[in-house]
Design a protein around this nucleic acid. Sequence first.
DNA 1: CCCCGTCATACCCGCAACGTATCGGAGCGC
DNA 2: GCGCTCCGATACGTTGCGGGTATGACGGGG
Lengths: 298, 298
Amino acid sequence: MELRHLRYFVAVGEEENVTRAAARLHVSQPPLTRQIQDLEHELGCALFERSGKSLRLTEAGRAFLDEARAVLARVEAAVARARGIATGREGELHVGYAPSPTIGLLPGALEAFQRSHPSLRVTLHDLSTPQMIAGLHARTLHVALMMQPPKAAAVGLAFEPLRAFSIVVAMSARHPWSRKRAMPVADLLREPIVVLARKEYPDYHAFLARVLGDDLRRLRIVEECDGGMSLIAAVEAGRGVAVTVSALGDAAGARLRLVPLRPAPEPAVVGVASLESGLTPLAAAFVSVVKAQDVRLK
Amino acid sequence: MELRHLRYFVAVGEEENVTRAAARLHVSQPPLTRQIQDLEHELGCALFERSGKSLRLTEAGRAFLDEARAVLARVEAAVARARGIATGREGELHVGYAPSPTIGLLPGALEAFQRSHPSLRVTLHDLSTPQMIAGLHARTLHVALMMQPPKAAAVGLAFEPLRAFSIVVAMSARHPWSRKRAMPVADLLREPIVVLARKEYPDYHAFLARVLGDDLRRLRIVEECDGGMSLIAAVEAGRGVAVTVSALGDAAGARLRLVPLRPAPEPAVVGVASLESGLTPLAAAFVSVVKAQDVRLK
DNA sequence: CCCCGTCATACCCGCAACGTATCGGAGCGC
DNA sequence: GCGCTCCGATACGTTGCGGGTATGACGGGG
């Protein structure tokens, strides 16, 4: 059976007249008769009762007419959907993001993208860097907003840098170091330190390892927080200081003082990652929109 | 586009490998490649990304794969449904009936039919004779349990008689005539008469006209009832007598006495009507079941 | 009784779907 | 780096089938 049979049958079924249906379909009557017979033969049951003159739908024919119309409508919808997705006018965009460093980036990017692609669903996924890389490869993520991964982890991925954040020590405004220009690492080691929980934020600990190297193990960690907001609150309350990227200022506002580390480590680069090849039109659009909207790479 | 394209695409999409898909479909690889290309060309968008070696579904391709599978499943279902209906294993049977004369007939008939056709929905429609005849012709009714219609109204219909009911006068057990063998029409005209409302029971008044002829207008009608139960109650209460078929005894039981009219009019024949030609398998089955179950044509 | 409308059959033609053979390119082992 | 292998794309001949014309069969209406 082919869609042709269904299209022909719908016409004949609606007209209950082969000749008129043939005119409607712009074919001649005999082939149409033949196709209908073939269809009935394949189904193994009569769709029409022939009364010499004219023909009439059987019970089964009426049911099959409904079904055939539904199938054809479904095909139409399938075509429309595929075309819509291919042209980027519909579909779903799955965006992975690392919350802390992208907090000042994400809202603007989403807004700009929704403006250029209205009626498009964007799904956000709060993930760690390894999860995002895996998601991109598995095609469950289209793009990921994250810190620049090491070269080795990024094979097959394109990474577009957007902002560079300096590494700072966050502390309460009442802290003795809060008015200084910078804090030496040696002094940091004497301070009580607040960190994000290792279990829930492997990325943060990888970041600390990169920034501090061996000094990481000499930190006096007094508290582990289960989220960025708890960390800010703990630091603001003076329970300790935290090593973080300057992006934290976007979330904390004036509640915290951010003092650069000395010597200044390599700045942390945040950007958008996607597949190097075979990225969807939507993903490409997202990358270019975010890039255009966030030209200021500091 | 034809179902072939969808079948081929589903195979290639699931395998993401033309050669294996070709083997699965029992065709050679080149035609399959070509059909897929034709499909993509017709859709106007790529369903696969070609990376030299092997090929991979695009976003649109994944969506279209789901849709194509759904279409094929729907086609399967359509075929199954048509076949099921044609062989009488599923579907719906619409049965029209005239309540009063068929009250002793319908329950047994339905039970017997449900036994021979389980998992089949039967819908009952309480209708007047002209409505049933129209419904049979319009194919909204499959069969109708009713009084035998006049020849003129029954063109194109097959009527299978089942029972013949004599015409009786229903009255309370306390009525002076309740012990007599029969009641002459002349005496009936002196009695107060209870009838069914003309508006709601045109059939009943047609029946009276057939049985009594011109005497109908000489009846002393004292009350119109809006249903069979009200009629029985009114007669039982002694407000008057009613002219009816002996089938009423099935509903009234011992509460009423039924005295034959004299001279006895032609008995009222109740049976099952259906289309003379082109009746569905289910309708035919219903007629034969009811006939077999109700052989005693009195 | 003839004519018209309608569906079914007979027959022919052309295209498009299929098969065989072959090419081109990418990964892989030596 | 070279050849080998695997896979998809292309080329081309063949054929089956969908579609066209002509005609038959049949019933209903003037």
